[in-house]
């Protein structure tokens, strides 16, 4: 397939680099200031080398990537909230051209799920968004395979930064500020970690899953418009005010605290929860885990890397394979 990759951050870059290994061709690659566009295939390595040297990716404007020749648009620009722009417009443009869309950007499917499905319904193109939930972990595909109609709940540890902080606090008896500083030194936490530690990132992922579950009960886009949820519908609490003493008390009782997100048909709830210390959800470090409750299969759990360029790119490329 011919891919146009929007966004040259860790995920976009990895998708572009791995595309040929998966048998695809990158015909456009853009970041916020420039684009490399070539209908015969962009020289990805050269473009990324230029970017690393502080030069533009290529001679084209960012908008040219969107107008280029491609079969599937890979939207890997940063997640934005509210109207989810400019990601949403990118999705619309591609679908109006009857092209497929693979999202790594959570915004459009977390904030405007029904709008995206509405555009898709009028297009020959399809939309997939596995990479938006749980990085490398195949959450959406598994729910889809199992039949979303029979899935009652999806819950899990969906933010590596928050999990790193909580598991280090519990293991070392350190307080939040200390561990956060350490995480920032290690590159696990960003300079402004609020998106992660306040639970927003985990909530967006749960909102996307809740939409997938609710969609299974809808017969039309109109019905989905009434039922779809957004971040505003989620009940979200972060880990900033979890003191070391809470983790100690939990540990004395064979438990620990994890930032757990839950998505059901009723809604989305994210917050610090008590979990058994040796239980499924008590993953450590930046690892993520997802539990799926299924009417007939019972409980299933998949654990893996919830972030990272290549890890998330593997989910994007799995979606591209679904389009073939």
């Amino acid at each position: 397939m011919r891919l146009a990759v929007l966004g040259a951050g860790a995920v976009g870059r990895s998708v572009a680099e791995l595309a040929s290994e998966y048998g695809h061709e990158v015909t456009a690659l853009s970041d916020s200031s420039s684009a490399a566009v070539d209908a015969d295939g962009v020289d990805v390595e050269a473009a990324l080398t230029r970017k690393e040297a502080g030069e533009p990716l290529g001679g084209a404007a960012p908008g040219d990537a969107l107008a280029a020749e491609y079969d599937a648009l890979v939207e890997a620009t940063p997640t934005t909230l509210g109207d989810a722009e400019p990601g949403y417009s990118h999705v619309r443009t591609a679908l109006e051209r009857d092209r497929h869309v693979v999202l790594a950007n959570k915004g459009p499917v977390a904030e405007r799920y029904a709008d995206v499905r509405g555009l898709e319904a009028d297009s020959d193109g399809e939309v997939y968004f596995e990479a938006t939930v749980g990085g490398a972990i195949p959450v959406c595909a598994t729910v889809d395979d199992l039949g979303a109609r029979h899935v009652s709940a999806v819950r899990g540890v969906l933010n590596g930064t928050a999990n790193f902080v909580l598991s280090r606090m519990a293991a070392e008896g350190l307080d939040y500020d200390h561990v956060l500083a350490e995480a920032q030194d290690l590159g696990v936490a960003e300079a402004d970690p609020s998106f992660d530690v306040e639970g927003t990132d985990a909530a967006l992922k749960c909102v996307i899953v809740a939409n997938v579950l609710r969609e299974a009960d809808c017969d039309s886009v109109a019905q989905l418009r009434e039922r779809a949820v957004t971040l505003a519908d989620a009940e979200v609490a972060g880990i900033r005010d979890v003191p070391g003493s809470a983790l100690e008390l939990a540990a004395e009782d064979g438990r620990t605290v994890r930032l757990v997100g839950e998505a059901t048909r009723e809604g989305v709830r994210v917050g610090p929860r008590l979990v058994p210390e040796n239980g499924t959800l008590a993953v450590t470090g930046t690892r993520n885990i997802v539990e799926i409750d299924h009417e007939y299969a019972g409980g299933l759990a998949i654990s893996g890397r919830g972030a990272g360029g290549e890890e998330t790119a593997s989910a994007v490329l799995a979606d591209v394979a679904r389009l073939e």
Partner: peptide, 18 residues
């Protein structure tokens, strides 16, 4: 009930109870 109040801390510090 188990209470863990920060030793000698001012009123700023949070305590925890299980």
């Amino acid at each position: 009930i188990d209470l863990s109040a920060p030793a000698g801390a001012g009123s700023e510090a949070h305590s925890s109870a299980r």
